[in-house]
Amino acid sequence: MKIDKNTINKIARLSRIKLDDKESEDYIKDLNLILDWVDQLNEVNTDKVEPLSNISSSILPKRDDVSNDTNSSEEILENAPDKLEGFFAVPKVVE
C-alpha cells in the first residue's frame, strides 16, 4: 500500500483540502488503486528519453514590456467573497 492514513493527510494538507474521515478512507482506496494501475509505466524503458512537457511546436514568443489596463479593480472586486476599501479581505493572519 502506497497511500496510508498519514500519507493521505499529508497530501490533503499540501492541497489545502479538508477531508472528513469517510472521504479519507475512500481516497486511500482510490489512490492506491490508481497508483497500482499507473505502475505499469515501469515496464517501459525510458533511459535516454527526454521528458515531453510542451507539445506546442511554436517558439515561445516575447512581448514588449508595456502595461495595459484590461479590467478595472471595481469590476474584479465584484466577484470577491469579502472586500474592504478596494482590497480583498481575508481572516486576520497576525494577531
Binding site: T7, I11, L14, Y27, D30, L31, L41, T46, S53
Partner: peptide
C-alpha cells in the same frame, strides 16, 4: 478532489521522478 490529491502526490518531493517525470518520458 481525487484528481487534485493524485496530482499533488505525483508532484510531491520523493515521488516526482518516479511518477511525473516518468510519465513525461513515456509521453515523448
Amino acid at each position: 478532489k481525487r484528481r487534485i490529491l493524485i496530482g499533488t502526490y505525483v508532484l510531491s518531493a520523493g515521488y516526482y521522478d518516479a511518477y511525473y517525470l516518468k510519465a513525461q518520458k513515456v509521453r515523448k
